[in-house]
Deep mutational scan, measured.
Amino acid sequence: MMITLRKLPLAVAVAAGVMSAQAMAVDFHGYARSGIGWTGSGGEQQCFQTTGAQSKYRLGNECETYAELKLGQEVWKEGDKSFYFDTNVAYSVAQQNDWEATDPAFREANVQGKNLIEWLPGSTIWAGKRFYQRHDVHMIDFYYWDISGPGAGLENIDVGFGKLSLAATRSSEAGGSSSFASNNIYDYTNETANDVFDVRLAQMEINPGGTLELGVDYGRANLRDNYRLVDGASKDGWLFTAEHTQSVLKGFNKFVVQYATDSMTSQGKGLSQGSGVAFDNEKFAYNINNNGHMLRILDHGAISMGDNWDMMYVGMYQDINWDNDNGTKWWTVGIRPMYKWTPIMSTVMEIGYDNVESQRTGDKNNQYKITLAQQWQAGDSIWSRPAIRVFATYAKWDEKWGYDYTGNADNNANFGKAVPADFNGGSFGRGDSDEWTFGAQMEIWW
Rank of each mutant, 00 (worst) to 15 (best):
M1I: 08
I3S: 09
L10M: 06
A16G: 10
G17C: 07
Q22K: 05
A23E: 08
M24R: 08
H29Q: 10
A32P: 14
R33C: 02
G35V: 03
I36N: 07
G37C: 05
Q45K: 14
Q46E: 03
C47R: 12
G52C: 02
R58H: 06
G60R: 13
N61S: 10
C63Y: 07
E64A: 15
A67S: 11
E74D: 11
V75M: 11
F83V: 06
Y84C: 09
T87A: 03
A101S: 12
T102N: 13
R107H: 02
N110Y: 05
G113V: 11
G113C: 09
N115T: 13
W119C: 13
R130H: 02
M139T: 05
Y143H: 14
W145C: 13
G160V: 14
F161V: 15
G162D: 03
A174D: 06
S177T: 11
S177A: 08
S179Y: 09
S182I: 01
T189A: 05
E191G: 08
T192A: 14
V199G: 12
R200C: 01
I206V: 14
P208A: 04
P208T: 12
L214M: 05
G219D: 00
R228H: 04
W238G: 08
T241N: 11
H244Y: 05
F252S: 00
N253K: 08
N253S: 05
F255Y: 01
F255C: 14
V257A: 01
Q258H: 01
Y259S: 15
A260S: 04
S263A: 12
T265A: 13
Q267H: 06
L271R: 07
G274A: 06
F279C: 13
F279V: 14
F279S: 02
D280G: 14
Y286N: 09
N289H: 04
N290D: 02
R296L: 05
D299N: 03
D299A: 03
I303F: 03
S304T: 11
G306S: 04
G306V: 06
D310N: 01
M311T: 00
M312L: 05
V314M: 01
V314A: 01
I320N: 08
D323N: 01
N326K: 07
W331C: 03
I335M: 04
P337A: 08
P337S: 04
M338K: 11
W341R: 01
W341S: 06
V348A: 01
E350D: 08
N355H: 11
R360H: 01
T361I: 01
G362C: 05
N365K: 13
N366T: 14
Y368H: 10
K369R: 04
A373T: 00
Q374P: 11
W376S: 15
Q377P: 07
A378V: 02
A392T: 03
D398V: 07
D398Y: 08
K400N: 09
Y405F: 07
G407D: 00
N408K: 10
N411S: 04
N411T: 14
N412S: 01
V419I: 09
P420T: 15
F423L: 13
N424D: 12
G429V: 14
G429D: 08
G429C: 11
R430H: 04
D434E: 15
T437N: 15
A440T: 15
A440S: 12
W446R: 15
